[in-house]
């Protein structure tokens, strides 16, 4: 069940910072410890930047969710950009088409509890991450 939800625009560099700040605030609100806060915020930073840089902009949805007796912070990044041809390749450490470190997607997956990616070339990309308390 979604207890709380907010959606933020992700169009430019500054928006990445804003989404990160909201993610931090919600992580604190649901009681995530400092280490887990930092993990989800770091993953947020990576995925939000991908949405802006590769997806041509999109949205970030921040949900506080409840499942059984556990609570979590779920973030969903969506864009209608070019999509990813080969998701396995994109998830390989060091793979980048933009001169980055190529660790954003793969690293984010390691930083969170749940990770899912859905991408269709020509349609867009949606990445979801969840950190449970």
């Amino acid at each position: 069940m979604i207890l709380k939800s907010e959606t933020l625009e992700l169009r430019e560099d500054n928006a990445v910072v804003r989404v990160r700040q909201r993610a931090r605030a919600l992580a604190i609100e649901i009681g995530l410890g400092l280490v887990d806060q930092t993990k989800i915020v770091t993953a947020t930073s990576e995925l939000a930047r991908n949405t802006v840089d590769y997806g041509g902009g999109g949205t970030a949805t921040l949900d506080v969710i409840n499942e059984g007796n556990r609570r979590g912070l779920k973030l969903t990044f969506s864009d209608q950009g070019p999509g990813i041809e080969n998701i396995d390749l994109a998830l390989t450490d060091g793979y980048t088409t933009g001169g980055g470190l190529g660790l954003g997607l793969s690293g984010s997956r390691r930083l969170v509890n749940d990770f899912s990616i859905d991408s269709t070339p020509g349609i867009g990309t949606t990445v979801s991450i969840t950190r449970w308390i």
Binding site: T38, K39, G107
Partner: peptide, 13 residues
């Protein structure tokens, strides 16, 4: 800081 170091390790940096 410790929490940053941990996140960096997970990122693979």
């Amino acid at each position: 800081r410790p929490q940053i170091a941990q996140s960096m390790v997970h990122l693979g940096v």
